[in-house]
Simulated assay, not measured.
Amino acid sequence: MVPDRITGRHGLQELRTLCPKRQWNFIEVNVTMEELQEMRQLRVSDLVYPLQTVLDDSIGCAIWFAARGHGILYSKGTTETDGIPYTSRSKVVLVGMGADEQLAGYSRHRGRYNSEGLPGLVEEIEMEIQRISARNLGRDDRIISDHGRESRFPFLDEDVVSFLNSLPVNLKANLDLPRGIGEKYLLRVAARLLGLREACLLPKRAIQFGSRIAKLEKNKEKASDTCQRLLE
């Protein structure tokens, strides 16, 4: 019952309420320590290379297991008794990358805003966008492609990026508001208009923490440290 599973189940119920005639397949992915270590050495370490930080390891592993799409399927409910083993047949994986970078979703955005105001926040967002290809895109695309699936990045669509860049930053984020509201404010408003009243109030949670994969092994590492597990 890690945080992302709890919010995932809540999101499933919200989607079923909004679109009751659609078939929603919710796959719970359970990973043991032994499988994590095995697949890191067999697959993930080569896929994230040349990136080698603790952050790359935890995110890379989390995305690899998620993109594999193998777990327990809950198609009718979310109880522990109605699940069956299942592997997704989808060929496309939708990835939310770009939302945090463009809409001030990270805690460092709030820190920069608190210390330097809107000019500092604008500069931070610009830096995030410029480095996203080197920091994230290649790594995540290789990991997802390892399962024979293609990644799609809706928030990095040229039209979406162009539209967001045309807006003043105060329309995209309002960091005077509390966490879970102010960051990615524009996206939250859009989600609420679509009927996602619970999801639009969820605070930002990084995949490595929401899945708790970062806590399975060493807890005292820094994200920027070189990950020795990738080098073994």
Rank of each mutant, 00 (worst) to 15 (best):
R40H: 04
M97G: 10
D57Q: 09
Y74R: 03
S45T: 08
T81L: 01
L73M: 05
L94W: 06
Y86M: 09
R40F: 05
C61L: 15
V92P: 02
A66M: 10
A99T: 11
E80C: 07
V93N: 13
I84L: 11
G83E: 07
S90N: 15
E101R: 08
A66V: 06
D82C: 04
T78G: 02
T79M: 04
G69P: 13
E34G: 00
R40Q: 12
F65H: 05
E34F: 06
G96H: 11
T79R: 03
T79K: 04
T87F: 10
E101Y: 05
Y86R: 11
D82E: 14
E35L: 08
S75T: 04
I63Y: 06
E34I: 07
P50Y: 02
R40Y: 01
A104F: 13
E38Y: 02
D57A: 01
A62I: 11
G77Y: 02
R43K: 15
M33Y: 01
A66L: 15
T81G: 05
K91M: 12
Y74T: 01
G98P: 14
Y86T: 14
L73E: 02
H70R: 15
E80Q: 12
M33N: 04
E34L: 09
Q41W: 15
I63D: 03
S58M: 06
Q102I: 06
T79N: 09
I59D: 00
G71C: 01
T87N: 10
L103G: 07
Y74S: 00
A67M: 12
G71I: 08
T78P: 01
K91P: 06
L103N: 10
L36R: 04
L94N: 05
G83A: 13
K91D: 15
C61T: 14
G60E: 11
Y49F: 12
M33T: 03
T53D: 09
V48G: 05
I59W: 00
V54P: 03
L42G: 00
M33C: 05
A104H: 09
A66K: 10
F65K: 08
L94K: 00
A62Q: 05
V48N: 01
M97R: 10
T78M: 07
L55Q: 04
L55K: 04
E80M: 10
V54F: 05
T81M: 03
G96C: 12
Q102W: 00
S90P: 07
R68A: 07
T53L: 09
H70K: 14
I72Y: 00
G69I: 12
S90R: 15
M39T: 09
G77M: 08
G60A: 12
L36P: 00
S58F: 06
A104C: 15
V93F: 13
D56A: 08
A66H: 09
T78C: 02
Y49L: 02
A67P: 10
S90F: 11
R89G: 15
S88D: 13
S58K: 05
S88N: 12
P50M: 08
C61R: 11
V48S: 06
S88M: 14
G71Q: 04
Y49S: 09
T53S: 15
G98F: 14
R43D: 12
G83S: 03
I59V: 14
M39C: 03
Q37I: 12
G96Y: 11
Q41D: 14
E101P: 08
D57F: 11
V92G: 01
H70L: 12
V92F: 04
S58L: 06
I59N: 04
T87V: 11
V54S: 00
L36C: 06
R68V: 01
A99D: 15
V95L: 14
G77S: 14
D82K: 08
G83C: 07
